[in-house]
Design a protein around this nucleic acid. Structure first.
Length: 313
DNA sequence: AAAACTCTCAACCGCAGCAGA
DNA sequence: ATCTGCTGCGGTTGAGAGTTT
């Protein structure tokens, strides 16, 4: 039983691509666009499986691809992102324009994994005065995507970062920046606009008429087409993850922050800002109002989604 | 010079998620 | 609700290049 193979392997070329195959594929995609990979080889006249074409295009032929020469900045970002996300190579690649998940994965496995591992060992040695064997971290490059050890700090000190372990695509977000009664009272068109902050979509249904909850979702948080992981990452990446700076601030809030991940208002506002595209927030007043409401609404949203998909790292 | 060994990275594989029927 | 097909992801492999002995 099982699934049928993605394509018949018979009569297909395998292994390294030739320059001619590259040209055929590139020309075809330029003419017809990406996608429909399964039918692409037949239509383009390539003796390759669709999957192979997709991979070749995404990892090698795409015009916007940077190849090689990963800069120290990029390297540092990869390390930080890997600490946050583990082996979520596609998410990491998404933060590095022009880099592919495959390239980053390879780079990690051949360079950074070893580097990070040796740094951890050095830290362990210097901290404890002797070498400490840490099997989990000695296997960094072989970690599976589900291995939560990727989120563990080399230190035994608890850190307090919240990471969504699974990417979550949202379809709509509406942040109601004012108490419901106020909105009902107000006929001010600005307030009407405010009700749509964060959506980038057409005027929603009259916000004052919204029920307190839509299903289990608080009515003041409806979400439109963005990745929750993106929001969190934006906030987190704008902070110093190296264990100083904002990290200290986070730690100092740890008593409350474990129960309420966004107890730190500045973090909340950062997240809210990340969630709102500039074309949605018409001025600072709106943005601030939305940001403060985002706090409560997002916390409710987290509860709604169940805490089990969120990890403290 | 050449055999042995190591490293790099493009490509492959299997699985999971999603959408549409 | 279930099935099917497509796409995307992460782990793994292996050919070829580079280095060492």
């Amino acid at each position: 039983m099982g699934r049928s193979p993605c394509c018949s392997k018979e009569g297909l070329n395998r292994g390294a691509w030739t320059a001619q195959e590259d040209k055929i594929l590139t020309d075809y995609i330029r003419a017809h666009g990406e996608g429909r990979w399964r039918n692409l080889p037949k239509k383009a006249g390539l003796k390759r499986c669709g999957k192979s074409c997709r991979l070749r295009w995404l990892n090698y032929l795409r015009p916007d691809i940077k190849r090689g020469n990963i800069s120290p900045d990029e390297e540092e970002l990869i390390i930080r992102l890997h600490k946050l996300l583990g082996n979520r190579w596609s998410l990491i690649a998404g933060r590095l324009p022009g880099r592919t998940d495959n390239e980053i994965k390879n780079y990690w496995n051949t360079n950074l994994g070893k580097k990070v591992q040796s740094n951890n060992q050095t830290n362990s040695q210097s901290r404890d005065g002797h070498k400490v064997e840490n099997p989990k971290h000695s296997e960094t490059s072989k970690m599976s995507a589900d291995d939560n050890s990727a989120f563990e700090s080399p230190s035994s000190e608890p850190e307090h970062r919240l990471v969504k372990t699974k990417a979550l695509k949202c379809s709509r977000i509406l942040i109601n920046p004012l108490p419901e009664q106020e909105l009902r009272r107000s006929k001010d068109p600005i307030n009407k606009d405010l009700a749509a902050v964060g959506t980038g979509v057409e005027d929603p249904a009259p916000t004052g008429a919204l029920p307190p909850f839509v299903g289990n979702i608080p009515a003041d948080l409806l979400i439109d087409d963005f990745e929750i992981g993106e929001i969190c990452l934006s906030g987190l990446l704008n902070s110093d993850l190296s264990g100083t700076g904002n990290q200290d601030q986070l730690n100092s809030n740890s008593n409350t922050s474990r129960d309420d991940p966004f107890a730190d208002q500045s973090q909340v506002q950062g997240l809210a800002w990340a969630a709102m595209s500039s074309d949605c927030a018409h001025d600072n007043h709106q943005a601030n109002a939305a940001a403060s409401n985002f706090h409560q609404a997002f916390a409710s949203f987290l509860d709604y989604n169940g805490g089990d998909q969120w990890l403290w790292v």
